[in-house]
Nucleic acid binder design. Structure first.
Lengths: 121, 121
DNA sequence: TCGAAGCATAGACGCTCATCGATGTTTCGT
DNA sequence: ACGAAACATCGATGAGCGTCTATGCTTCGA
């Protein structure tokens, strides 16, 4: 499955006026919304995938190929490719193939979208 | 295990000046930091637990007992108690027992702390 | 043209986790 | 004192996931 979930818009974020939510009794998250958000969080809820995202963002040019990421993580190449696919399918990364190399880049605003969604829960 | 992980401080958040990170080549997340953040995200990366957090926050008084949450979720009481323990151990909820009832409350700023950490990845 | 390099995919294995039924513990009425 | 109610804990089970080895596909250089 290669469905892209991001970007998502924080639709029900107009709850907090000052620094606190005045009426705490807004409506709870919908079951479908909870399922979608949990899918996004599951993709990030792994130590190696978090390090992958961070290493790609910290790499020069904001992109990195698989060969750059395998050795510092101590994982095999298929495992790294698997994690990169999970992150790409969730919408956090994009893949650009140049020659024999596959360069992965962080999607701008992807992490911020999830962070914004977290406050709407 | 009942170790409380939250609250966490976003120590390396002084990266973005305007709306974009000027040097994208900051240092990547540490392995221990990735492990801790993944633990926090794992606790939230479940549809029922997201709905629990949302339902507790939306409930009157900002608190709810187990009996309030079992029926709308369609889960058994032991399963709901299990999820509430996971969320409490992660630092998202607090437990206050009054009589035979156990009232759960959302920890203020817990979700915002994780959201802030997400942008530091 | 052919071998090598980079990467993706397939299949398998072991572990974690979500959920359940059963049971123990505590507290409140009667 | 005793039964009932609310909740936590325990043990089991089935599904999902992270990781590996093996293999296939694509691209480049000799």
């Amino acid at each position: 499955m290669t469905t892209v979930l991001l970007p998502l818009t924080a639709t029900s974020a107009a709850c907090c006026i000052g620094d606190t939510c005045a009426p705490l009794t807004r409506e709870p998250i919908t079951p479908a919304g909870a399922r979608d958000l949990s899918t996004l969080l599951k993709a990030l809820a792994d130590p190696m995938r978090l390090r992958l995202v961070s290493m790609i963002a910290a790499h020069e040019g904001g992109e990195a190929c698989v060969c750059d990421l395998t050795e510092p993580l101590g994982l095999t190449q298929p495992t790294v490719s698997h994690h990169l696919k999970v992150l790409t399918d969730a919408g956090y990364l994009t893949r650009a193939k140049r020659g024999t190399w596959a360069y992965y880049t962080l999607v701008p605003g992807a992490l911020d979208s999830v962070a914004a969604l977290l406050r709407t829960v």
